[in-house]
Design a protein around this nucleic acid. Structure first.
Lengths: 227, 227
DNA sequence: TCGCCGTTGATTGGATCCAGTATTGCCGAA
DNA sequence: TTCGGCAATACTGGATCCAATCAACGGCGA
């Protein structure tokens, strides 16, 4: 499904390279939602002409990370509360399936690593670190799945919501909610026992609870007045 | 979610126009899976230069309809049995959700039309007509859903499997299986009664049974020796 | 003073040209 | 006869140039 720590691949066209670099920049928060991406700027910054940049923008548009308006320009996609809830509802239904694909092929070292990540998250008090660990934990639990579309779909959903997860996390932490960590531990145990049904249930509940929590914080989606 | 009978929109770039035209051609079966798409050919055929064609190919690649290999070329995507089963499993889980979004906003005329389509399918004995009716029936049942990503996801899954549904349908018909029609009738009734849970269950079972049936016919996926 | 309209500048879209790469066919050697 | 290597060709990828479109600004009129 494309490893989480994908290093920029030497293969592929310049357009794909630029797309990878832009994607990384967007996910890391360098570009905020609503930020304009000018073709010439991007071309200079990534050492290419505008042609591959346009290709990259098409790729990222298809992934939902960028919004293109004909004859006008490209912006980093914004999410509304409704859209975000929708994506979480989709995740509730398909991530358990992906997990089911993955569990049988997860090795002992990988499972131990998941345990380590779950523990590390409990100890972490840095937002950015928590985000990285959480992503690594969940995508890591899917890593053994040899799917051709499902894995990519899930990764795209994670990518599209990345910026907003950063915002929620701040809020959740301040509320001192422990259920997230509880879910993670339950999940690791279910994976250890290869209990597919239980793992599905836990994961479903985990995502669902996050969605419900999220609906209580619509303020995260308010347009920042600073364009 | 973008109407089923999308007419080629006047808006948007030439690349999008070419993408729409190529998509229609692929879905109609004019291009078979595995068929090569040469940029210059496509450019001539659609009255544009190679630049918008390359844009179109990127768009269709993102939709999974076209497979691009750097420095080599573009082909209409082929599906393997495993991939197809995967997509059906995804559909089992997300189409019921999409239906749930749609039902509350379906009007009486739309529901009557669904009934009409279900009846027409039972009477139809032409493969191509059946395919069209089936697609119109299911996507029609989702038409009232005002989603921003789920609808497109489902439509893409339908598109990617379109060619292979054409092939199954031939087989199913010859086996004289009536359960498909039974499901359709049950679905319309559940929708009439606005019974969301029942509608979800019926649709889930409908897609699931099709998937299991499909697994019994791996021959559909054999590489045709004629490239 | 406010709103409408035309003009100018900035930015995107498309076409052509050139370079790079893969594939095909051919030739020669085993 | 068959396999390996080399050359020619066809196709894709990228850059530059020109056209088209949108947005911002300023001027004019009410």
């Amino acid at each position: 499904m494309g490893t989480v720590t994908d290093i920029i691949p030497r293969t592929g066209s310049a357009g794909e390279r630029v797309a990878n670099e832009l994607r990384t920049a967007i996910l890391s928060g360098q570009y905020a939602p609503g930020a304009r991406i000018r073709q010439e700027d991007a071309a200079d910054r990534h050492g290419a002409s505008r042609v591959p940049v346009r290709e990259a923008l098409r790729i990222l548009e298809a992934e939902g990370l960028v919004t293109l308006v004909a004859n006008t320009g490209a912006w980093v996609s914004r999410l509304g509360l409704e859209e975000c809830e929708e994506m979480y509802q989709i995740r509730e239904r398909i991530e358990p399936l992906l997990l089911r694909y993955s569990i049988p092929d997860l090795g002992q070292p990988e499972i131990d690593h998941l345990q380590y990540l779950a523990d590390a998250m409990e100890r972490s008090d840095d937002i950015e670190e928590f985000l990285t660990l959480d992503r690594e934990f969940h995508l890591g639990s899917y890593a053994a799945a040899r799917t051709s579309v499902l894995g990519d779909m899930v990764e795209q959903l994670w990518n599209r919501t990345q910026h907003y997860r950063r915002a929620f996390t701040r809020v959740f932490r301040s509320e001192g909610d422990r259920s997230v960590h509880h879910d993670h531990q339950l999940l690791v145990h279910a994976i250890r026992r290869s209990d597919l049904d239980e793992a599905e249930r836990v994961l479903y509940g985990h995502i669902r609870r996050t969605r419900l929590e999220l609906a209580r914080h619509p303020d995260v989606f308010l347009d920042p007045v600073t364009n």
